[in-house]
Amino acid sequence: MGNGIWVIGEGKGELSRATCECLSEARRLAGEEKVSCLLLGSGVSSWAGQAGKFGADEVLVCDNAELGKYNLETWAHLVAAAVDSKKPDLVLVPATTHGSELAARVAARLGLGLASEVVSLSRGDDGQFRAVRPMFAGKVRVTVRFKENGTRMATVRPNVLTLAETNRSGAVSSLDFGKPEKTGADMVSVETRGEGSSVDLSEASIVVSGGRGLKGPENFHLVHTLAEVLGGAVGASRMVVDAGWKEHSCQVGQTGRVVTPDLYIAVGISGAIQHLVGMQNAGCIVAINNNPEAAIFKVADYGLVGDLFEVLPALTEELKRSRN
């Protein structure tokens, strides 16, 4: 104990929201102990100081032109070396695609306990960290304890913990671990291509999801238009994805994404259990369905019984009007 809490951050030109959530949580858990943010990449030093705003006392950067492209093996090597040399008490990582695989490799390399997809963290009077994480897609949740002292790790599910601005110095300093070693792993190339400015499902504060009630992919534009007016992301039920109307990255539910927006609007979705577990922790749930017996109404804060082909255009217009 006493070695502080680390957050392995991520971002592009600015810290990702998920990183800021981890920092806010680290600050809360740390009390007056030190919170550090570790950032890897090319040019990260120029914006690393932002971490201070969310409670980081210091930002450790591996800023290297060779780190322009994400490479799991390289990242894991550098993060493991940093964690092993400073031995923080707790390391928080956003449970994103990159963060999750990075945390897993680092934990396996150093033999550390890693609680993944955590939704809440606490520290007992004994100083021990405990983490709460859902299992069975949220049908139950478990509180886990780390069996060993030393560094413990957790990946934190985005959009669950609250942001808290607490100005700290966020002083930036360099960590140098030399050139990343060649591991048995060899990532040959990484290409990233954007697909427009679509809001990301797991970080969105508003999600509008469509289901079977839309009758076909040609009607999904109604969902898109509503999401656009609200500045939200588009989701879909399993049936819609299995039928090929939408890509799997949109699927909300047990075999898709678990989302926790402030507002979730389910359109033409009946509410099968495997869908409900993916969205039942949203702040406010609205269900629009023509069947008053649909299971989705049992979890909805506001249910609107009606024909979605009439309701959606009317709702989109009303929102546009009320905004002006």
């Binding site: 033999g111 405990r130 049908k139 478990v142 509180t143 886990v144 304890r145 069996k147 039942q280 922790n281």
Partner: peptide
């Protein structure tokens, strides 16, 4: 190799 222990399981 087990580093975590479940203390309790609850319904949400």
């Amino acid at each position: 190799a087990v580093k975590l222990e479940v203390e309790k399981m609850e319904y949400p």
